[in-house]
């Protein structure tokens, strides 16, 4: 504290002698040192392409010929007359708001259980991470059909309870849920992040709580969860963004078209179809910016709410 006060005083003294530009440079030179690689990457690899796509979103661009300026046409078409756009938004929102909470609850629960105090801990951790290693791969695509198909194991299991067989992957009212199950089942990434976060909680907090006679659940709610809020917040934001952008599950497992009856038509899959199979890159760019706005709105909301429940070490 003292050092900070001293620094501030000397800074005040300096202000009078130096020009504004000099002051700006002094304030930012250290940050610039740390930020330069990222800034270059941001400008060259993200901002310029983003500006380009922003421009393209106001054009008709078939990827071969020069883009033709069409003003707000793409946006107007999307928002007023494209039924598949609405459908893809619906599918994606469902996927996000059912899938992400499920996945995070699984991840958090298992991270707490697998943090300590179980025999064969690291073996279990590795096994529980296996589904995420596999990713939404071709092999999983086949497996999912074998599990949830008409002749699948799930039907065999359900028949014990007298439930009639159904092709869960081909029934438009259930096909999306098979992909949600896949998301929840591949909870490894957030689990690892939770585990890393749990490791950062000082053990003496638990020790002193034990001395005060706190039980398992008291410790969970009074120590673990509050200490972990930055990590919970991180996982929530990132998984939300990820789920909004989900593409591979629908592309590889859903069979690339979003079927049956557009029930697995994820937003990003529709965008991909527009861009690469129907050659409407301008339209797809407009879709990308709408998605960006939707994600930004939800993320912004999370950041606003975060002030109420996320505690940072001060």
């Amino acid at each position: 504290m003292q050092a900070e006060a001293l620094e501030r005083e000397s800074a005040l003294l300096n202000v009078k002698k130096e020009s504004a530009g000099r002051r700006l440079w002094n304030k930012n030179k250290v940050a610039l040192l740390f930020l330069t690689p990222w800034l270059i990457g941001l400008i060259v690899l993200s901002l310029i392409p983003m500006i380009a796509s922003m421009y393209l979103s106001f054009t008709h661009y078939d990827m071969f010929n020069m883009p033709k300026w069409t003003g707000f046409d793409n946006y107007i078409n999307l928002l007023t007359s494209d039924l598949r756009f609405t459908q893809s938004l619906k599918v994606t929102l469902k996927y996000v708001f059912i899938g992400v909470p499920l996945q995070l609850i699984m991840a958090f629960g298992l991270a707490v259980v697998l943090n300590r105090g179980v025999r064969g801990l690291s073996g279990f951790r590795a096994i529980y991470y296996v589904p995420s290693l596999l990713g939404p791969s071709l092999a999983i695509a086949i497996l999912w059909k074998q599990l949830f198909g008409m002749d699948g194991i799930i039907n065999e299991f359900l028949s014990i309870f007298g439930i009639a067989p159904n092709s869960w992957v081909a029934d438009p009212s259930t096909s999306l849920y098979t992909l949600i199950i896949l998301l929840a089942w591949q909870f490894g990434s957030p689990m690892v992040i939770f585990l890393a976060g749990l490791k950062q909680i000082p053990t003496d907090l638990y020790e002193s709580a034990s001395i005060d006679g706190a039980g398992r659940f008291t410790k969970l709610f009074k120590i673990t969860i509050p200490m972990l809020t930055p990590i919970i917040f991180f996982n929530l934001v990132m998984q939300l963004i990820n789920a909004f952008q989900a593409f591979t599950p629908a592309y590889i497992i859903g069979g690339q078209t979003g079927g049956p009856l557009d029930s697995t038509l994820f937003y990003n899959l529709y965008l991909y179809i527009k861009a690469f199979t129907e050659f409407q890159m301008g339209y797809a760019s407009a879709m990308a910016w709408i998605l960006l706005a939707v994600i930004a709105a939800f993320t912004g909301l999370l950041f606003l709410l975060a002030k109420k429940w996320v505690h940072y070490e001060s």
């Binding site: 059909k145 198909g149 008409m150 092709s167 069979g255 079927g259």
Partner: peptide, 12 residues
Amino acid sequence: SGQVSAEQSTTP
């Protein structure tokens, strides 16, 4: 049926 065909169309 539609459902069975839909499943067929995405199987190898």
